[in-house]
Design a protein around this nucleic acid. Sequence first.
DNA 1: ACCACATAGTCAAGCTACTTGACCACTTGC
DNA 2: GCAAGTGGTCAAGTAGCTTGACTATGTGGT
Lengths: 147, 147
Amino acid sequence: MQNSEALVLAAALLAAAGDLTQRINDGVVARGFEVRPAHGFAFTRLAPDGATVTELAAHLGVTKQAASQLVDEIVRKGYAERRPHPGDARARLVVLTERGWACTRAAEEAAAEAVRVWVELIGEGEVRALRDQLVRIAPYGPIRPAW
Amino acid sequence: MQNSEALVLAAALLAAAGDLTQRINDGVVARGFEVRPAHGFAFTRLAPDGATVTELAAHLGVTKQAASQLVDEIVRKGYAERRPHPGDARARLVVLTERGWACTRAAEEAAAEAVRVWVELIGEGEVRALRDQLVRIAPYGPIRPAW
DNA sequence: ACCACATAGTCAAGCTACTTGACCACTTGC
DNA sequence: GCAAGTGGTCAAGTAGCTTGACTATGTGGT
């Protein structure tokens, strides 16, 4: 593969990721939730059983101060709440509220809607293949803004 | 495709894009250029024949003031220069210097190096297929940070 | 049992890459 | 040839991050 082709791949990947992210966020906002994209990726970490601020910081690839500010924001907006951590009095467990769960479901709907456009473009099988390949090459590292 | 699968696709896409962007930028920095990722995407627009600040702003999806500041920076660092625009005395044509071209070539090398890792993971044919599919679904809109 | 050290979290201040608003120079179209 | 539009910059404000400092709690060695 030529060098210049690699840059084309990078540009297309960035464009697709940016487009998808924006479509999902727009869809969530249209459903009545006041959020930005970073919140969504925080929610996916909080979703199963909650998480501490430090765990969230690692997931998002930011400092724990930044993660703490983000938690302040989603708590203030009613999507999550801080609870005492069972088994560690220093830590606090951040868990989603019912509204937080509703927002998560809205994000899934919006994502499905955005992907549907792609399915119409290249077909469901191709989208699945795309996803499978991406899952194989995507590192399980922090979810970060692309730049 | 279930709703939750769409979010998995989005997360994988974001992770892959973020990872690739960072690898490319690290590679360019390692080759002795002091840049950030947004510069690279500016370069790809400037590369053929130069561009005006307004065109660059549209390409990057930011205000023309922001684009102007970015041009200030890459001019100060010696990667580009402002020239009078032939045929429009209001505009100025921003063109790459020789160092700017060298940086672009370094980005291509770094991108190829990063993609090589993927080729080893899933094979060259799959990477090509990935690129082709992405090119088909990626809108030709602005290149933006993923969030 | 104690004390040094590590870790969870927050407060405060600062920075950077953006934004909005105002403005001038030049161009375009009626 | 003047009104409206466009290219570019200057200035000020802002959002979301950073680094630094600190308290409270947990951990491990002697």
